[in-house]
Amino acid sequence: MTFQPVKFYQTGTFTVGNRLLPAETRSVQANMRRTNSLNSGHRACQGCGEALGARYAIDAAMHATENRLIAANATGCLEVFSTPYPETSWQIPWIHSLFGNAAAVATGIAAALKVKGRSDVRVIAQGGDGGTTDIGFACLSGMFERNDDVLYICYDNEAYMNTGVQRSSATPPAARTATTTLGNSFNQGKNLPWIAMAHGIPYVATATIAELRDLEAKVERAMHVRGARYLHIFVSCPLGWGHPADQSIRIARLAKETGLFPVFEAEHGEVTSVSKIRKKLPVTDYLKPQRRFAHLFSPEVRTDLIARIQEGADRNVRKFGLIEN
């Protein structure tokens, strides 16, 4: 494909990546020849964490594969906002089949590439948390178990956003959605990165849109591994979570800094690195700015529920060793 050098207006900002750095350490997004795989003009909400995460992830994957990449996409916000008929934002070969089969479609693509001897072309599958942890779970597990040469990226905005913010199995305790109007129950949870690790696949990582350089690095690393890989990206959703559009990155950072969303890497089922928390913050810092948790603070402060959420965060801190000692 041909490249159009991209103009940057936010020189020096965190988003684009600091171009004053030496070339090798610059982010993919700072590169004038970045592919803009998910091009501008799509229909995502302002401040959509999923759009941001996908752009960084796919451009990084393109960079790592020298632009030889094919993507399979599950139904969901990312698919809908990126391909409003008759336009498409995708600058890469891309297929959307169904809500629950992205991993299997990617397996098929990988199998086709293998028979055709195209080991240079790599495959990613991507979907939202619903398409990953719920309806697409069986296909995902099958792809892991066979160790197919696919990187699966889950954009976790903790609910079914495309259909209007309904609960998914990734919706956190107490969060209000259109189908948990009193706040989600405190379930046992479904920790997909952990489940992915249980398959013993070569690479599992989590990331957030608050640390985009880390996200890019993990995608690069994933693309240099063969076999099934899983990347779980925490992406804020201003519409579904009820926070201002300009707070998306801050909310994501708070998810990590409170310990609610551990950021780590694992190889063959073993945790190999953990992003430490710089300064541990109470979960209320994270919960308060989001309307989906407003009922925890008014008409009365639900200290009981907040305490349980804090317990979960503290458990993560212990489990992953999130704090430098």
């Binding site: 089949s97 089969n101 299997a104 397996t107 990988a110 028979v115 055709k116 001897g117 296909c139």
Partner: peptide, 25 residues
């Protein structure tokens, strides 16, 4: 050359076939 994929369900069987066919196999 032929890839024989043992899938985990018929839904996956057809989905893998969809991916493979779209990739030209």
């Amino acid at each position: 050359p032929c890839e024989f994929v043992n899938v985990e369900s018929e839904f996956a069987a057809m989905s893998v076939a969809i991916g493979a066919s779209a990739a030209g196999a």
